[in-house]
Write a protein that binds this DNA or RNA. Structure first.
Lengths: 240, 240
DNA sequence: CGCGTTTTTGAAGCCCCTCAAGTGTAGTGG
DNA sequence: CCACTACACTTGAGGGGCTTCAAAAACGCG
């Protein structure tokens, strides 16, 4: 059974069975990490590349006044910057949100993979471009969408990303994020996020239970969000 | 005299003189583009990689309701995604803001450079990581900074980026951006951007004339912004 | 069960938006 | 040189979306 990382990269056409096996092996160094634990902190010298195998993490920054802004969610299958080691130091933190299982690919092994396996390298490029697309989509959301659309858009994105790694069951998926965490990602307060979820729940569009998201009316959700999944660059993707 | 692109990559230690010459040559295919002209549109199949030599451009998205969100400014020396060609189609637009001079590096030439010049390849990685850092910094700004801090932060960023390509003169630099354009980048209205600039001007902190930015009190500006330039990853950078 | 955290709801206020009108300013053509 | 046009900038008034502050209820975990 392939891990979520390999599963995700398989969604990209050029990854062969042989490549998948090699990737699987590259993730052999694994460790369990508790929830709310930083994998790497701002100012640290980047070393190995992390791969999320189980559990969720996020990239975040803390502001001088104490506020937190999450800039990305890392779910099973996601990994962190194939070339970070080029940088002298990290400009943000990465921390777990749930208990997680994380693989580390040493810098040398990464470079070896890149040098010798063009298919894997292309798959890495692809994930990096998708991650950039997600960053841009977040900027669009924060800049020009009102709170309901912003919440709806994030839920659409996370649902589709979970589906892309085969982690959805029908119209629901695992989503171990508190409203506080979502607020820190959306640039809202948890109080307001709560009111938005209340409205969407009463409108029978979606519901956020502890640990999971249930979407009852994905069409209306996508419509409220103005969601177009093109930025996730799934090969042969069907529209939502 | 090296072009702005080579000048920028030189800021990254590993670029040798020989590499610089090769890069310069790779930019030999140039063309002039009028202001307000799209270099590439959402849905297009990416081909060559663009390099900005003169003038400014931006990445942007248009929302269903007609609003525009700018997700990045491209200034002289910036280039666009070394691996875009991996994607089937663009998920956003890139358009000029001023008359510009743009180089195109064909996909094949890019791959050749990457295969044969590790120093150049590392410099490309570096610019990509800086661009990602900028995207994250924008998310932090839009999510957690109030309008004055947000405007101040963007001005700090653009000033430092201009300085990194040697395009500043003392405490001022070229900045051919209208308040409307800035508003579309900041997630604010141009009316409010105008009021913020008025306040900062009256406080004798900075002034935006047509075409240029003059910073009178960079320390207070950086303080208002909560600006830390670490995310721009300048080698041996001095603090602001 | 008890405690910490998250969720939920209310009330008041502010930041930024919307709408609107008037004032520059640069470019064009007579 | 001055209409004329098209934008961008500027300023005011009013409103709404989201925040802040506060407190109670519900949840989850040892």
């Amino acid at each position: 059974m392939a891990n979520a990382f390999v599963e995700k990269l398989r969604g990209y056409a050029s990854l062969t069975e042989a490549d998948a096996t090699i990737l699987e092996a590259a993730c052999s160094t694994q460790r369990n990490v508790a929830a709310r634990h930083d994998l790497i902190r701002e100012g640290d010298k980047p070393g190995s590349v992390f791969v999320m195998l189980e559990g969720w993490a996020c990239r975040y920054k803390i502001l001088p006044e104490g506020g937190r802004q999450i800039t990305a969610f890392l779910m099973p299958g996601d990994f962190c910057d194939m070339h970070v080691s080029v940088l002298q130091e990290m400009d943000h933190n990465i921390g777990t949100l749930t208990p997680a299982r994380v693989a580390s690919i040493p810098r040398a092994r990464m470079e070896e993979l890149i040098d010798t396996h063009p298919g894997i390298t292309r798959a890495f490029w692809w994930t990096q471009l998708v991650d950039e697309g997600i960053l841009r989509a977040w900027i669009v959301s924060m800049g020009r969408r009102k709170s309901s659309a912003r919440v709806a858009h994030l839920m659409c994105e996370l649902y589709v990303r979970m589906r892309n790694v085969g982690a959805t069951t029908g119209d629901s998926c695992e989503m171990p994020l508190s409203q506080i965490v979502l607020a820190d990602a959306l640039g809202l307060t948890s109080v307001h996020v709560n009111r938005v979820f209340r409205k969407l729940r009463l409108a029978k569009i979606m519901e956020l239970r502890t640990g999971s998201l249930i979407i009852s009316d994905i069409e209306r959700l996508a419509q409220i969000a103005g969601f177009d999944d093109n930025y996730l660059h799934r090969r042969g993707a069907a529209a939502v």
